[in-house]
């Protein structure tokens, strides 16, 4: 028996919106640690890793480890039927091939349940080592989303370059070129507005903007985004999920042939 209950159900709706465009089908892993997912996009250059720790839920019961294969577009369709203020419960009984999503309105006057078929998914699980990154940028997530959106009207790729001057995002295309420089800015009224750059070594990497734009679907989850980079390693773009975990996106850099 697996059951989780999340009073702030909108978080789960936002999580699904953050991953459904990148990944079609994925295995959710349920264990005593929490509710997690690791999935690659169909071209195998980007990976999303989600962790929602069991302590973050109002109720969490997982009698034995369980893998639930779900079509994310279908799961998102079901979660869209939950109101933003609804409490969401996810339930799966042992030995069944369905999962139930239950939505309760805050005043308990409307209770809906939606049953979805599970699927068998063959997926590769990658071991991601904890790495020391040469440069870590923390900045407002809305600012990062804006930069990715603006640069994608200029070119297909973004060059992210971290130096002691700050972080530069550059794109080039048929109509011209663009450079956006963000400097460290820790002296802000609200900590969520800060831009903090920790640099051990200058790093310059190139990435496909299509993926970066897809990652920014997680912007409603967190005020800040963390971008971790090292030479010739996949970038990690991380959004925290309200004290209960994270969504991390990994994207392989484009390498000069």
């Amino acid at each position: 028996m697996f059951e989780l209950r999340l009073v702030q159900g909108s978080l789960l709706k936002k999580v699904l919106e953050s991953i459904k465009d990148l990944v079609n089908d994925a295995n959710f892993d349920c264990s005593s640690t929490g509710f997690s997912l690791q999935a690659m996009d169909s071209s195998h250059v980007a990976l999303v890793a989600l962790l929602l720790r069991s302590e973050g839920f109002e109720h969490y019961r997982c009698d034995r480890n369980l893998t639930m294969g779900m079509n994310l577009a279908n799961m998102a369709k079901m979660l869209k039927c939950a109101g933003n203020d609804d409490i969401i419960t996810i339930k799966a009984d042992d030995g069944t091939d369905t999962v139930t999503f239950m939505f309760e309105s805050p005043s308990q006057d409307k209770i809906s349940d939606f049953e979805m078929k599970l699927m068998d998914i063959d997926s590769e699980h990658l071991g991601i080592p904890e790495a020391e990154y040469e440069a870590i940028i923390r900045m407002p997530s809305a600012e990062f989303a804006r930069i990715c959106r603006d640069l994608s009207s200029i070119g297909d790729t973004v060059v992210i370059s971290v130096t002691k001057e700050g972080v530069r995002f550059s794109a080039r295309g048929d109509i011209g070129a663009a450079n956006i420089v963000c400097r460290q800015n820790a002296t802000v009224d609200k900590p969520e507005d800060a831009t903090i750059i920790e640099m051990q070594e200058p790093v310059t990497l190139t990435f496909a903007l299509r993926y970066m734009n897809s990652f920014t679907k997680a912007t409603p989850l967190a005020e800040q985004v963390t971008i971790s980079m090292s030479s010739d390693l996949p970038v990690v773009v991380e959004y925290k999920v309200a004290g209960m975990g994270y969504i991390r996106y990994y994207l392989a850099p484009k390498i000069e042939e």
Partner: peptide
Amino acid sequence: KRTQFPLRLYFAMT
């Protein structure tokens, strides 16, 4: 020309 390598070249499969 820049190319993109799959993630499994960076992270081993478990």
